[in-house]
Design a protein around this nucleic acid. Sequence first.
DNA 1: TTAATAACCTACTATTCCGATAGGTTAATA
DNA 2: TATTAACCTATCGGAATAGTAGGTTATTAA
Lengths: 142, 142
Amino acid sequence: MLSKKTKYGIKALTYIARQPSKKPVQTAEIAENENISHKFLESIMVQLRKSGFLGAKKGKGGGYYLIKDPAEIRMTAVIRILEGPIAMVPCVSLNYYEKCDDCKDEETCSVHQLMIQVRDSTLKVLGNNTLADITKDKEEGS
Amino acid sequence: MLSKKTKYGIKALTYIARQPSKKPVQTAEIAENENISHKFLESIMVQLRKSGFLGAKKGKGGGYYLIKDPAEIRMTAVIRILEGPIAMVPCVSLNYYEKCDDCKDEETCSVHQLMIQVRDSTLKVLGNNTLADITKDKEEGS
DNA sequence: TTAATAACCTACTATTCCGATAGGTTAATA
DNA sequence: TATTAACCTATCGGAATAGTAGGTTATTAA
């Protein structure tokens, strides 16, 4: 299950990416429009800034703005920062690997084998989707 | 993240499927070999039995046995019973759908769009894998 | 018929994490 | 100098997870 943190984070990034101008966007505005707890969102924005996705400006007219081109922001990166591992089991995680303490042999573990496949297919989808991709409203006819 | 419950459940099913004979297997044996808390595993087995995956026999020589052919048991079914929804967000779940209370319009929600893709790719993998598939040890060279 | 076995049932609990709240501090603008 | 909005620290209730404990029922074998 995706945490609200990640969900809100992606929504906020999308909100900013959809802005016509490049002026900073306030968390209060995003929170209101996306029905997110303001304070909770603030903590998420700080994390996204510290991770290099956003820049911030204080005071009146301040807010958050994108640092990179939306087409350069892969969903894998966003989710890894906000959610943590993409894999459903630590023993198949590429970035957050951890050995199972119950499992003797990963090679013969059925869960391991299966979860590698799930991880790879998920990785493919998230790696192919950038912020630019998910920002555009629905695919319009070809 | 996959719960231990689901992980243990899959391991137990695999353990039984790997048995050479069709005799019932005791939870104590599985628990010991797979390093699972016995009592915890018991509760999982009961659930798998009630869901129609396993049969049970009490008393000496008793235990659990598979009811269906392993090739007929899809991982989607097992995971839906033990873990719940496969989708990462309730609003894209096929079997456990729930509307987000923050989201006004699913169509324009970037998270929604993205998670549909993740769901579909995961579903594909889990739907293509049966208990028979994950039971066999590693693919041997062609 | 009795003892042993193993599934089954109910209840409780410790720990962790999530989502949020509260209240204040710093920096930039008007 | 006042206002604004990011930033920081601390706290907290509730839910879920992963288990523990202790007993009951049904089946088998001696």
